[in-house]
């Protein structure tokens, strides 16, 4: 950033995020290896969402970015989930 006040993410923070991501990967592999039926899909998707949040907030720096970026990102995700919702309403109640 041109003002020279850019937030710098520490090496240790980045290493800790990677550690958490690897633990979550291990968790998703072990959860899906036991047969939980439809719940394994839910569990895998929830863990994937958690991992994606970590990548977005720390690796992609969104946690420390401007409000404009945060709001735009949220808007895109909301639109995406609305599309999913509408598509599945169509398929479930056709």
């Amino acid at each position: 950033m041109s003002e020279g006040k850019a937030h710098i993410t520490n090496y240790s923070t980045l290493a800790m995020v990677l550690g958490s991501l690897l633990v979550l990967t291990w968790a998703t592999v072990s959860i899906t290896s036991i047969n939980l039926g439809p719940w394994s899909v839910t569990a895998a998707l929830l863990i994937a969402l958690l991992k994606a949040t970590l990548v977005l907030l720390y690796f992609m720096h969104l946690k420390f970015d401007s409000k404009l970026l945060k709001i735009s990102f949220t808007a895109v995700i909301v639109v995406f989930f609305l599309v999913i919702l509408l598509t599945f309403f169509d398929y479930l109640f056709r």
Binding site: T32, V41, A48, K51, A52
Partner: peptide
């Protein structure tokens, strides 16, 4: 990071579930 982000969803959907 985006490439990583996409893989986070591809991996469980194709390989694990």
């Amino acid at each position: 990071h985006l490439v990583d982000l996409i893989w986070i969803f591809l991996f469980p959907l194709f390989y694990l579930i």
